[in-house]
Amino acid sequence: MRPATTAERRRLRTRRRLQRPVETARLRLSVFRSAKHIYAQVIDPKRGHTIAEANSKSLGLTGNKTEQAAAVGRAVAERALAAGAKQVVFDRGSYRYHGRVKALADGAREGGLEF
C-alpha cells in the first residue's frame, strides 16, 4: 500500500470530522477548486442528492478569482435558502481554509447560510 499524500491525508482528516454531522442529517456544503474555476454544492448526505449548486463557470463572473469565489458562495447560499436549507456543514475537502475557499465560505455566510 502506498503512503498517502499530504492532500489525501488532509481530505481524510476533514471527512473524519464530518462523520458525526452526517449522522445527524445536516446538509454538507462541498467545495471543489480547479485552476480557473470554483464549484460549490449543498448535498443531502442521507439521500446523496444535490440540493443546490453554483460555480464560477456557469455564472460568467468577472474579477479576480477570490471575488468570483465570494460571488459563488452568495449564489449557492441564495439557492440553498430557496430550497429550504439554512444550516450546513462546510466540507472544504483537501483544500486549506485560505484564499478562495475562505472567500466562498464568507460569501455563503453573507448569503444567509449558517455553519
Rank of each mutant, 00 (worst) to 15 (best):
residue 75 A to D: 15
residue 82 A to Y: 02
residue 102 K to R: 15
residue 3 P to G: 11
residue 47 R to V: 06
residue 109 R to N: 06
residue 84 G to N: 04
residue 102 K to G: 03
residue 106 D to Y: 00
residue 58 S to A: 13
residue 51 I to D: 01
residue 109 R to M: 10
residue 66 T to E: 13
residue 58 S to N: 13
residue 31 V to Q: 11
residue 106 D to M: 05
residue 113 L to W: 04
residue 27 L to C: 12
residue 68 Q to S: 05
residue 56 S to L: 01
residue 15 R to I: 00
residue 40 A to F: 11
residue 56 S to K: 09
residue 91 D to E: 08
residue 45 P to K: 05
residue 89 V to A: 15
residue 5 T to Q: 09
residue 3 P to N: 11
residue 114 E to R: 15
residue 99 G to D: 07
residue 79 R to P: 13
residue 65 K to A: 15
residue 113 L to K: 07
residue 105 A to G: 02
residue 6 T to V: 04
residue 70 A to T: 03
residue 62 T to H: 09
residue 53 E to A: 15
residue 20 R to I: 03
residue 109 R to K: 15
residue 21 P to D: 07
residue 49 H to T: 13
residue 99 G to I: 06
residue 87 Q to W: 10
residue 72 V to A: 12
residue 80 A to H: 12
residue 80 A to K: 12
residue 105 A to Y: 11
residue 39 Y to E: 01
residue 61 L to T: 05
residue 101 V to Q: 10
residue 39 Y to V: 03
residue 55 N to W: 05
residue 7 A to W: 07
residue 109 R to H: 13
residue 103 A to N: 11
residue 10 R to Y: 04
residue 19 Q to D: 08
residue 52 A to L: 11
residue 73 G to S: 11
residue 97 Y to R: 08
residue 27 L to E: 08
residue 14 T to A: 15
residue 13 R to F: 01
residue 98 H to R: 14
residue 42 V to R: 06
residue 86 K to C: 03
residue 66 T to C: 04
residue 90 F to M: 00
residue 9 R to D: 00
residue 94 S to P: 12
residue 61 L to P: 03
residue 24 T to K: 15
residue 27 L to D: 05
residue 88 V to N: 10
residue 18 L to R: 07
residue 23 E to N: 09
residue 9 R to I: 06
residue 45 P to Q: 07
residue 63 G to A: 12
residue 18 L to P: 02
residue 83 A to M: 06
residue 45 P to G: 06
residue 53 E to D: 00
residue 73 G to W: 13
residue 28 R to V: 14
residue 80 A to M: 05
residue 108 A to S: 11
residue 66 T to A: 14
residue 60 G to A: 03
residue 17 R to H: 03
residue 22 V to Q: 15
residue 100 R to D: 00
residue 107 G to A: 04
residue 85 A to T: 13
residue 18 L to Y: 09
residue 21 P to A: 10
residue 74 R to E: 14
residue 29 L to R: 12
residue 92 R to M: 07
residue 47 R to E: 14
residue 38 I to N: 01
residue 92 R to V: 13
residue 82 A to G: 08
residue 54 A to H: 06
residue 26 R to I: 02
residue 53 E to C: 07
residue 66 T to H: 14
residue 109 R to T: 12
residue 39 Y to G: 02
residue 88 V to K: 10
residue 56 S to R: 08
residue 33 R to Y: 06
residue 20 R to S: 09
residue 64 N to L: 09
residue 84 G to P: 03
residue 21 P to R: 10
residue 7 A to L: 09
residue 17 R to E: 12
residue 53 E to H: 13
residue 12 L to F: 07
residue 91 D to N: 12
residue 97 Y to Q: 02
residue 67 E to N: 02
residue 25 A to D: 14
residue 72 V to N: 08
residue 64 N to V: 10
residue 94 S to G: 14
residue 12 L to S: 13
residue 111 G to R: 09
residue 88 V to I: 15
residue 61 L to A: 02
residue 24 T to V: 00
residue 77 A to M: 11
residue 60 G to M: 04
residue 33 R to T: 10
residue 30 S to F: 04
residue 4 A to W: 07
residue 46 K to N: 01
residue 1 M to H: 03
residue 1 M to P: 08
residue 53 E to I: 01
residue 112 G to Y: 11
residue 87 Q to N: 14
residue 105 A to S: 10
residue 72 V to H: 13
residue 86 K to M: 02
residue 30 S to R: 15
residue 29 L to M: 14
residue 106 D to T: 10
residue 84 G to E: 04
residue 15 R to Q: 11
residue 14 T to L: 01
